[in-house]
Design a protein around this nucleic acid. Structure first.
Lengths: 245, 245
DNA sequence: ACCTGAACACCGTTCAAGT
DNA sequence: ACCTGAACACCGTTCAAGT
């Protein structure tokens, strides 16, 4: 009765509503809290009702990834390849940051969804129309890796877990055992503009390595790099050039 | 009776034996098949017996990561920083490749174990003794990210899953929808030396982007880069130099 | 024909009962 | 004091029974 009344008040279930509820639940409660059962409860529906709109949990996660990737802004044409790629990737980063679970879920997918494939296709196109050979574009895409979607795999899960006030990764007590880590941690803690608590400026780090790669790509493109010449040889030849220049 | 006889035959349980059995089980059956219950069964022991040697499953996974990281060869002194770092990272890569689950597990850990911290400390040391400032070393470590431990996060799980003969990521049917992906896939399929099945040469891709980064690091080091000057400005200044040179 | 509750085959971990 | 079986609170998904 009450159940029926509630069902009548809510809009009918649809794949889209299921996916958006999944995204909302993962945003709020974390990806570990996302279960078919909890999602059904959130939607005021019996668990099995979900299976009419998604084949299983894997397909639910696929669809949720599509929602996030759908938030990435389209490429803006009419600028140099580097600026265009840079802007697009930083837009992807903004989308991913809004959904902290997304990076992990994307990497757990056994294959890209059509929406992700379309995004990758358009990024590849930006390199190709920017004057990159098929060969170089291929390796460049591998070098970008997950950075293409706006995230780098931090070595350890930096997401705010269930232990909010845990000791810092490199606490003072470990300074003796890990002198170089301590030196770095100390410098970061005193850095201007760093977040309270001694954290790193993730955006700066992201742009630092993104620009390092993009600059490297541009250098290779100008040299007409092909996979016949290994990058190491390339760099050595270039180092010689720089030294003499 | 039979149980007791079996228990008597086996060496007594220890933390080390539990960890090694966990590594072996994950190697053989995949990380998804690793459960406390199955691991106990593998050791001929009741599930609760494991909890005397590891506090919980999280600590089991931590210990398993330590086993893998322990396989990385120590640094060999007395060579230039780039060669030393390169060799060490490629050694880490060999260790990680032997345990396909390790990359995923490392990234799921909320914080580095002491063994991983010690490895990171020694890598930081290779940069510092190689002439890198604390500042630059910090950003360089971020840029390396998971590559430091020998793996890059491939955008999608390339590990041999439960569907061994599934269609290729970009099958011919999708060529029309994703023209640039198709172009790349076609080129890779015809590449010399590529594995049968059209896969990429992962080792080449890894070294390509590793060398791209290491070369970039060396360039910044020589320029005396500090975080006051952004990489982009650096590169633009350098581009002007290169163009005029 | 459609929907759904109970059931199945798992988890990690707690806890009290047994030796 | 030590060990461990049963139990708890969950999963994703199957399937047969109900409407």
């Amino acid at each position: 009765m009450t159940q029926q009344a509630e069902a009548a008040r809510r809009p009918p279930l649809s794949r889209d509503r299921v996916l958006r509820a999944g995204v909302a639940l993962a945003d709020e409660a974390g990806i570990d809290s996302l279960s078919m059962r909890k999602l059904a409860q959130e939607l005021g529906v019996v668990p099995m009702a979900l299976y009419k709109h998604v084949a299983n949990k894997e397909q639910l996660l696929d669809g949720m990834v599509d929602v996030v990737v759908g938030e990435i802004e389209p490429p803006d044409p009419g600028s140099d390849w580097k600026g265009a790629v840079r802007r697009r990737i930083l837009s992807a980063r903004r989308a991913l940051i809004g959904h902290p679970w997304a990076a992990q879920v994307i990497q757990s997918r056994p294959r890209p969804t059509p929406v992700v494939l379309a995004y990758m296709d358009s990024v590849i196109g930006m390199f190709r129309t920017g004057g990159f050979s098929v060969d170089l574009t291929h390796h460049v895409m591998h070098a970008l890796g997950s950075r293409m979607l706006g995230f780098t795999q931090e070595l350890f899960d930096a997401s705010p877990g269930p232990e909010p006030d845990a000791p810092a990764p490199a606490s003072a007590g470990d300074a003796g055992q890990y002198p170089y880590v301590a030196e770095l941690a100390g410098a970061v803690a005193h850095e201007e503009g760093s977040v309270v608590g001694g954290g790193c400026d993730d955006q700066f780090e992201f742009e630092f390595s993104l620009d390092l790669l993009l600059d490297g790509f541009e250098r290779l493109r100008r040299q007409g790099w092909t996979s016949a010449r290994r990058p190491q040889e390339t760099s050595e030849a270039q180092e010689a050039q720089e030294t003499t220049g």
